[in-house]
Design a protein around this nucleic acid. Structure first.
Length: 831
RNA sequence: GCCUGGGUGGUGGAACAGGUAGACACAGGGGACUUAAAAUCCCCAGGGUGAAUAGCCCGUGCGGGUUCGAAUCCCGCCCCAGGCACCA
């Protein structure tokens, strides 16, 4: 190692600047109606213990945006806090014999230090931790308001239960059939739980997807699919020999005349009811038991269509024909009504089922080739077509027929057109300790009673003994659980479930606007100024979890009168993962790079620069130790060059025009302004920090050449041009590498912080070139490059191209058919 | 199966609006400085064939097409990643 005084030492320089920024409260902001606000937010971390590279990447990207927007004169809110409730705290408590609260707050302290060491421009006065009563008391209040409005309800239902997490999962939290947190396979369980009526907002959530141009298309697509809107009809099939009807949802009402039997989900209440007392009762019961015993994943993988006859019949509301009612393994209880009208000729699943059980086929849709004959079909015909065998509807196209049939059913009171959503209500009950208590009380006399608002918060008891078996201690904690009924004052018991931690993260971004507000969840004045978030940055993994819940919650808060916005995040950037050796960094893979080690070895600026340079933000980033070395080398180079120019150009002002420049000095000046222009395009408009950094590297390379060129020493304006160039480089790199930039800025004789400097403007006049490089092609192949006056017209370009010796060689003896001239760029001579 | 992305040197990645493919960097090779090394600085570098920094040929997953000209546009495929998936 070279330890010359010229060598940049990040440890001391970075610490010094972090101290100054903090002492001068550089990043603290308040509402200022005179200035345009900009709310920049990165997804807050779970305080797991240490910051990982994914965080470093996420927050480095965010910090660049924050600093640039600030330099552009906006009033930038850039807060940080902690998603502090959650299971790992309980697990760690068991493993380390600490309390989840202790563990969490210790982690927060450590991670805060780590983030500060990275030099991010957070307003730390707004820091919040969701596990603190001053936060979750307002979450409980919102819960009560939602309860009042009927947006929360409690029901017993079939839920996804994760055995290893000992708790329930919402539909969104079962990812690819597995628990989103621990990757174990959930089982089905019947449990009581609280649900948020997100389905009430399905239509609005869907509509607004088209009004979020600042979101990546794939996130919008995922949400659109998750909501799963489809148009169709509800049709009632009257039961034979008893009261009632089976209701189905179908998107193909046009095939109704071809419905020859009925399929029920095994969980459908009618399945057992219909078979009760018939010879089929035993068979149905056995079948349901067998399907239930299958794991969810096995059931989803099951391709064989199986079922059993219930012994009952219903009638086709159009044809009146008898349809046997089956229970079938492929029918899903939680989509539509849990019952399907089976049209074997035009649905592949029904076709396979009908074959297996010898059920009748009636062809009702003819394709362009006409009817193919039901008996000769070897697969269902699922396209739209023309109706046949459908009585008065024969000859209609599928689309018209759907409407006509629904209308006819409506007249007879047997059906109507409808819209169906795949989205289910959000189950928020968690059978865990380390979460926000649900503010409800069970009274034997009054039933389920909400806690009174003035009694909030319902504090999580900190004296609970965490059980090593993993269950929540709350149900056994009588001192906490026993309470008085808010309604009658009699003995009652507190709800022991806590809220899904996604509830906390669904509104924390609004609370940042007013973290100290004690009159309600949100200060109307301050949220009016700051909300919504202008730019949100985080991982793609929350595409249908946090990002959908937050959209829902924003609309709820709006409807409860707490907020005035429709959507939480105007622009969304989903950054890619950090990969090493081809896999996501993880303890189990043993490929984790600890940010602490990197910061210690190279400094925060180097680590930040590397993660920004190695890949565009939305793509995955392959970690490379050598790449980090490269980033460090660049900063060292910038440092030496900065100091050299500072010394040579000590008392000289940056070049600002005047006098005439020539040769390399003029070229450097063009490079300086071109770099400002392109970095502004890349970094400010396109958020392509990898290319923005590359541009600055080019500029630094160019400055270096000029600075070292002995022939230029003594030339007038040399120092002024060098200073202008190096100052541009330092300012442009400052959002990415703020410490070294501020230090160089100081060494160049300036005071203050670069974040308070205006983002540089380029001089268009400098960029107007007198000469341009013109590529000459012969029949599309590059044969020569000419430097010509920029104002040369087409004829002049063509003449110059044809006169070129190399070009002559290639057109010799051939007739020139055509010449294409692109102004100031290219001449193509076609022979 | 459906829906998103994506496929460019040894590697990460550039390429405005169809106009020099490979910016910038990593790894590599050569040189300067040094007793030596590290550090630093300079040069080379898509592949093939050339002594060559002369030429020629090939080249952005594959096959076609449009165009004077295609990584970029169109058609048909293949592969990779992610999401959804018996959704009636």
């Amino acid at each position: 190692m070279n330890d010359s005084p010229q060598r940049y030492d990040p440890a001391t320089v970075e610490a010094a600047w972090q101290k100054r920024w903090e002492a001068d409260r550089v990043f603290e902001v308040t509402e200022d109606p005179a200035r345009q606000k900009y709310y920049l937010l990165e997804m807050f971390p779970y305080p797991s213990g240490r910051i990982h590279m994914g965080h470093v990447r996420n927050y480095s990207i965010g910090d660049v945006v924050a600093r640039i927007k600030r330099m552009q004169g906006l009033n930038v809110l850039h807060p940080m806090g902690w998603d502090a409730f959650g299971m790992p705290a309980e697990n760690a408590a068991i493993a380390n014999k600490t309390h989840p609260a202790q563990w969490t707050y210790d982690n927060i302290d450590y991670m805060r230090t780590q983030l500060k060491r990275l030099g991010f421009s957070y307003d730390w006065t707004r820091e919040l931790a969701t596990c603190h009563p001053s936060y979750y008391r307002w979450e409980q209040l919102i819960f009560l308001k939602m309860w009042e409005q009927g947006l929360v309800y409690r029901k017993r239902s079939l839920v996804n239960w994760c055995e290893s997490c000992q708790t329930v999962l919402a539909n969104e939290q079962v990812v690819a059939g597995l628990c989103w947190r621990c990757n174990n396979e959930p089982v089905q369980k019947r449990l009581f739980g609280y649900f948020f009526k997100i389905t009430d907002y399905a239509e609005e959530l869907l509509e607004w997807i088209d009004k979020l141009p600042g979101w990546p298309e794939r996130v919008l697509t995922m949400q659109r699919n998750w909501i799963g809107k489809s148009y169709g009809a509800l049709i009632r099939f009257p039961l034979l020999e008893r009261e009632g009807a089976i209701e189905v949802f179908t998107t193909r009402a046009d095939t109704l005349f071809g419905a020859t039997f009925m399929s029920l989900a095994p969980e459908h209440p009618l399945a057992l009811e219909l078979s009760a007392g018939t010879p089929q009762e035993r068979a149905v019961q056995d079948f349901i038991d067998r399907v239930r015993r299958q794991s969810l994943a096995d059931r989803a993988d099951e391709k064989l269509k199986e079922g059993v006859f219930t012994g009952a019949y219903c009638s086709n509301p159009m044809t009146g024909s008898q349809m046997p009612v089956y229970v079938a393994n492929f029918v899903l209880m939680d989509y539509g009504t849990g019952a399907v009208m089976a049209v074997p000729t035009h649905d592949q699943r029904d076709f396979e089922f009908a074959r297996e059980y010898n059920l009748p086929l009636i062809e009702v849709i003819a394709g362009p080739q006409g009817a193919q004959g039901a008996q000769s079909m070897n697969a269902a015909f699922t396209d739209y077509g023309t109706l046949i065998n459908s009585g008065p509807f024969d000859g209609l196209g599928s689309k018209e027929a759907m409407r006509a049939i629904a209308e006819e059913l409506g007249k007879r009171g047997l059906g109507q057109e409808t819209v169906n959503y795949r989205l289910r209500d959000w189950g928020i009950s968690r059978q865990r300790y380390w979460g926000a208590p649900i503010p409800m009380v069970h009274c034997e006399k009054c039933g389920l009673v909400p806690v009174k608002e003035e009694d909030l918060p319902v504090e999580l008891p900190l004296d609970a003994q965490i059980s090593p078996t993993g269950g929540s201690p709350l149900p056994g904690l009588d001192s906490w659980r026993n309470t008085a009924c808010p309604a009658c004052g009699g003995p009652a018991q507190r709800e022991t479930d806590t809220m899904d931690t996604f509830v906390e993260s669904s509104w924390y971004y609004d609370r940042y606007a007013c973290p100290d507000y004690d009159q309600g969840p949100l200060d109307p004045k301050r949220t009016l100024y700051w909300a919504p978030v202008d730019q949100y940055i985080g991982g793609i993994e929350h595409a249908v979890l946090h990002l959908l819940y937050s959209r829902f919650y924003t609309k709820v808060l709006r409807d409860l009168g707490f907020l005035k916005v429709d959507e939480p995040f105007v622009n969304l950037l989903t950054q890619g993962m950090v990969i090493k050796d081809g896999a996501k960094m993880s303890k189990s893979k043993g490929n984790v790079v600890d940010p602490n080690d990197m910061v210690q070895r190279y400094g925060a600026d180097t680590v930040r620069l590397f993660v920004l340079f190695a890949s565009p933000p939305e793509k995955d980033l392959e970690w490379s130790d050598q790449g980090v070395e490269g980033a460090n080398r660049f900063l060292q180079r910038l440092w030496r060059l900065g100091l050299a120019v500072a010394e040579e150009a000590g008392g000289v002002a940056p070049y600002a025009g005047g006098g005439s420049l020539g040769g390399p000095l003029a070229e450097l000046r063009v490079k300086t302004h071109d770099t400002i222009k392109r970095v502004t395009q890349d970094a400010v408009q396109a958020m392509q920090y990898n290319t923005a950094i590359a541009r600055v590297m080019e500029l630094v390379n160019a400055i270096s050449l000029v600075q070292q060129d002995e022939a230029l020493k003594g030339q007038p304006q040399r120092e002024a041009v060098l200073r202008e160039a190096i100052e541009a480089a330092v300012i442009l790199i400052s959002p990415m590498a703020p410490h070294i930039a501020d230090e160089l800025w100081r060494r160049l004789g300036h005071e203050g912080y670069l974040i308070n400097q205006p983002w540089p403007a380029f001089d268009q006049a400098v960029l107007v070139q007198e000469e341009k490089l013109v590529v000459v092609q012969v029949s599309g192949k590059v044969r020569a490059k000419l430097t010509l006056p920029a104002d040369a017209d087409d004829a002049a370009l063509q003449a110059a191209a044809l006169a070129e010796e190399k070009v002559q060689k290639f057109i010799a003896g051939q007739a020139v058919k055509k010449v294409i001239v692109v102004q100031g760029k290219l001449v193509n001579i076609v022979v």
